[in-house]
Design a protein around this nucleic acid. Structure first.
Lengths: 137, 137
DNA sequence: CTTTGTGCAAACGATTTGCAGGATG
DNA sequence: CATCCTGCAAATCGTTTGCACAAAG
């Protein structure tokens, strides 16, 4: 995605643009491996120091708040982040810990029919645990 | 469940029986609210001290290892535990934070057809977020 | 010029670990 | 009596917070 487009998406959500915020979001858009805060920070500061841990945390929190990114939790005690905001679920490899996006929108019967009466659904997410093709071959 | 039956289930998994381990597992079997470590500990030590935090952690870890309980993660940074080991998913109320079990076994198309070729499924779990009937009425 | 973000270090809370007794099989 | 569980406190690790300074609009 072009730099202008990234900036526009952030502005449209009312976010103030800073070099730190821009680089966090751009980094997340460029990768699909659901990185942790630590991994994002290491990536940004690879050549020279761009941002600090506290700022990455606050930026991710701001991006999540306005819906530009999602938080993914598959392991205990650690948050991962995902710039793919389209409806999707996750496949988690128990050997290499890689997380892959899974498009999975068709349920039958519909979720609403499976729930006890009177519950209101806001969202749902599924995690499939298994072994990925790379680890099997 | 009778005390003997609980003891037998643990023995069958090769676990050494101690008062602490017994009470943690019995407590978890008797409730269906997916308690945290803190809640289990408070419940056990209600009248007089039965166990310590470190022991509850190690017991839960042992029980999970042999498959007698499951760990449930819906909030960031906190683990909950569940003695219901049958296939089921979770409904999480965003107002009162209650977690309810949902029996939900029918998917169409089958999960295996939705996954990219070559992946091997071990398990899957879904979390539905919404508002429960009690909070709506 | 006002608002808001940044970065450091200290604080925090859940979980883990080391180790000296003590209980279990 | 050998194994390994228990409990305490200290350590660890991800995340949050307070605050002085700097940057954005």
């Amino acid at each position: 995605m072009k730099a202008i487009a990234i900036t526009e998406k952030m502005k449209a959500k009312g976010l103030r643009i800073t070099p730190q915020r821009y680089s966090v979001y751009a980094n997340l858009l460029a990768r699909c491996d659901h990185p942790t805060v630590e991994q994002i920070l290491a990536d940004l500061n690879q050549d020279f120091s761009i941002s600090s841990k506290a700022t990455v945390y606050s930026t991710l929190s701001a991006l999540k708040e306005v819906g530009l990114i999602k938080e993914v939790r598959v392991e205990a005690g650690i948050s991962r982040f995902d710039a793919n905001t389209a409806a999707h679920h996750h496949f988690c490899c128990s050997k290499c810990d890689a997380i892959a996006d899974i498009v999975w929108e068709v349920f039958s019967p519909p979720i609403s029919e499976l729930l006890p009466k009177g519950m209101q659904i806001q969202s749902y997410d599924a995690t499939i645990h298994g072994v990925c093709d790379r680890c099997l071959s």
